[in-house]
């Protein structure tokens, strides 16, 4: 038996696994092994932080949207990311940890967020590429997570998937305009694809063999498909979309393989992946500083709100 489970009551553990196998969702107050709770605390909060930190690279362009329509769409999209962060924090809070605490762990570097948001959004086509590729990859993952075994997480994912369906489309629409626009615009589109392709593939995480926590997460149906399965799914559906745009993915080996029925591709530069995870991506420090600074600057507003809320409650009681 897994070492992490040695303190669990075997009877309860058996019942728990039987529920999981029968596709019965686990709810906050139900029995769950401590390792299951810990896995969820880590995964859901990481997911929530990713949504919130993900507001920053797109926020980098919000003041420079080139049309009224583009500005409305981007604002609504960034707002959605914040909203999704909020849904996920709420789901994570059902595990008995407060949002305060989750934010502290983030600021202390104890909690992670998706490394992809440490890459830079350098030209307007990046906003297209982020929607098309980064949200595209996220959707593949999130569609799968709708069936996750933890009830609150699953319900948040259902809501998020419903709302996210416009994100990828708006991104692709920008890519279409850019790819079919002036030569400079097309160049920007290709440049964006070049820079965001591999970071998007990295979003699915390490190869299955190198993913230490995967097996229990699969057994407990927190994860429903493996990293490599999901990544291949994403590649298979995205490469033809790039071809339609007249753009090329930055991988000369990326070709359809008749025998496997899938696209072949050149493996990720894992040194870059691990460097980014360890904090050496292009914007790790900047993203975190932004979040910490905003949090600190908002402190007086939260204090005032607490003080006012207390006064008001007192008045109502009296």
């Amino acid at each position: 038996m897994d070492d992490k489970l040695k303190n669990e009551d075997p009877e309860l553990l058996k019942e728990f696994q039987a529920k999981i196998d029968a596709e019965v969702k686990i709810e906050p107050k139900d029995y769950m092994p401590e390792a299951y709770r810990q896995h969820l605390i880590r995964q859901i909060s990481q997911h929530a932080h990713s949504e919130v930190i993900g507001m920053q690279p797109e926020g980098n362009w919000i003041t420079r949207c080139p049309s009224i329509r583009a500005k409305k769409i981007l604002m609504a999209k960034i707002q959605d990311e914040g909203g999704h962060g909020l849904y996920l924090y709420s789901a994570a809070e059902t595990l008995g940890v407060s949002r305060d605490q989750y934010l502290k762990w983030l600021h202390e570097g104890k909690a992670k967020y998706a490394s992809v948001f440490n890459y830079s959004a350098l030209n307007w086509a990046d906003i297209g590429a982020i929607g098309w590729l980064v949200d595209g990859a996220a959707i593949v993952n999130q569609v799968s997570l709708q069936r996750t075994s933890y009830g609150p997480y699953s319900r948040a994912m259902v809501k998020i998937c419903k709302e996210e369906s416009f994100h990828q489309r708006q991104g692709y629409e920008i890519m279409v305009h850019m790819a079919q626009g002036t030569p400079e615009q097309k160049e920007m589109a290709q440049d964006a694809l070049n820079r965001w392709w591999y970071p998007s593939l990295m979003m699915f995480g390490p190869h299955d063999g190198d993913s230490p926590r995967s097996s229990l997460a699969m057994q407990w149906k927190i994860k429903r498909e493996t990293n490599d399965e999901l990544r291949q799914k994403f590649i298979d559906k995205t490469v033809p979309q790039a071809e339609f745009l007249g753009l090329t993915v930055p991988d000369e080996n990326c070709k359809f393989n008749e025998a496997t029925g899938h696209y072949d591709w050149t493996d990720i530069n894992w040194d870059e992946f691990w460097a980014s995870i360890k904090g050496y991506g292009p914007n790790n420090k900047r993203r975190m500083k932004h979040h910490q600074k905003v949090h600190a600057e908002g402190a007086w507003v939260r204090e005032a709100s607490i003080a006012y809320g207390k006064k008001k409650e007192k008045k109502e009681v009296a």
Binding site: I62, V294, V301
Partner: peptide, 15 residues
């Protein structure tokens, strides 16, 4: 107001 995206004192007010 758009400059305030990701600058809210807490998430709900950002939205």
């Amino acid at each position: 107001l758009c400059e305030l995206c990701s600058y809210g004192p807490f998430l709900e007010e950002d939205l």
